[in-house]
């Protein structure tokens, strides 16, 4: 039983690691979609950022400069999205898809041109990555405090600074969206842009601000992938995480805290899937990790279909705003 408990703690620990990029992207999605812009380009922005972070960190030796460069590129991708669907009123899904496909091509082409390693970046040394943060008194806590001591050591300590940043981003998102004037306007722009417009506030400007914030957050997710958990960029390293984050955002009904729990749930499923392959469970039989991986998507479909409570997306989502003259 103690072994089970220990394994469970380790699974929770890796849940946090797996969920971090999901949390960043889900918050990015909330900002964008709450302002009325569908964002399926979370995946592409994260991929571009991951590449730029690793390439810049390799060139400069500094993970921080890499992070800044990655965030800038991710914002540029957001701006392209905005140019297409806010200014030119293009279809938001098509624009997002274009960015995703563009990202998977561009990262590899530029990667080969720069490093000649088949699209990867060279392995980053520890000094040019974001490293784990060991909390103080770990050994003391483990030896002297029962139960919490081991939780402190295995679950809380030894995480990357970006893991904490992701958790903090949930609080910040909540605060901005629900406690500030800016957040009120941002939500209004996604529900009833006419109202915001008639109040004399520019819908275009609000939406651009929202997607720029989304760009920053996706950038951080990419930075985490290539310079924190990973030691460099690998072709297609986001591997659908942007879409899982999108699912988590919907699962969380476009709200920051529920979305956080959805990310943790999906992260937990992935962490468990890595551990249960071939494990027999009574009555159910052998668990297939292949199917477990599909569970987040399935749950999202079931939720969207209204079988577990209803979901209402922002009302004006997907519609370009046409100012009346």
């Amino acid at each position: 039983m103690t072994d089970f408990w220990f394994q469970f703690l380790l699974a929770l620990d890796s849940t946090l690691r797996v969920a971090t990029p999901l949390i960043f992207c889900a918050m990015a999605g909330i900002f964008s979609e709450r302002s009325g812009i569908i964002d399926i380009s979370l995946e592409g922005k994260m991929l571009m950022a991951a590449f730029v972070a690793a390439a810049t960190a390799y060139a400069t030796g500094s993970a921080w400069i890499g992070a800044i460069a990655a965030i800038i590129v991710s914002i540029i991708a957001s701006l392209i999205h905005g140019f297409a669907c806010i200014i030119h009123r293009g279809n938001q899904v098509i624009s997002g898809l274009a960015i995703n496909i563009l990202a998977s091509g561009l990262t590899v082409i530029i990667g080969i041109a720069l490093f000649r390693q088949g699209g990867q970046t060279p392995t980053l040394p520890r000094t040019s990555r974001f490293n784990s943060l060991e909390l103080p008194f770990v050994d003391f806590m483990e030896q002297n405090v029962p139960i919490f001591g081991i939780i402190y050591k295995e679950l809380l300590s030894d995480h990357n600074i970006l893991v904490w940043a992701a958790l903090a981003s949930v609080g910040v998102t909540f605060y901005i969206l629900f406690k500030t004037t800016f957040g009120l306007r941002l939500r209004a722009v996604g529900e009833k842009p006419e109202a915001i417009d008639s109040a004399g506030i520019s819908v275009t400007r609000m939406r651009f601000q929202a997607i720029i914030i989304a760009g920053i957050l996706c950038g951080l997710a990419g930075v985490y992938l290539s310079t924190a958990t990973g030691a460099g960029f690998v072709k297609e390293m986001t591997a659908g995480k942007g879409y899982i984050a999108l699912a988590a955002m919907i699962f969380g009904k476009w709200k920051p805290v529920p979305a956080l729990f959805a990310c943790l749930l999906f992260g937990f499923l992935e962490a468990v899937a890595a551990r249960v392959q071939g494990v027999e469970i009574m009555l159910i039989g052998e668990i297939s990790s292949d199917l477990l991986i599909a569970l987040p998507y399935l749950l999202t479909v079931i939720l969207l279909a209204g079988f577990i409570g209803g979901v209402t997306p922002p009302r004006a989502i997907g519609q370009p705003y046409i100012k009346e003259r």
């Binding site: 392209i80 030119h88 098509i94 898809l97 274009a98 091509g105 561009l106």
Partner: peptide
């Protein structure tokens, strides 16, 4: 792949 992305961008979204 990249050209495909550009085509979707320019003949779809834009």
């Amino acid at each position: 792949v990249m050209i495909q992305g550009l085509i979707i961008l320019f003949s779809g979204a834009l």
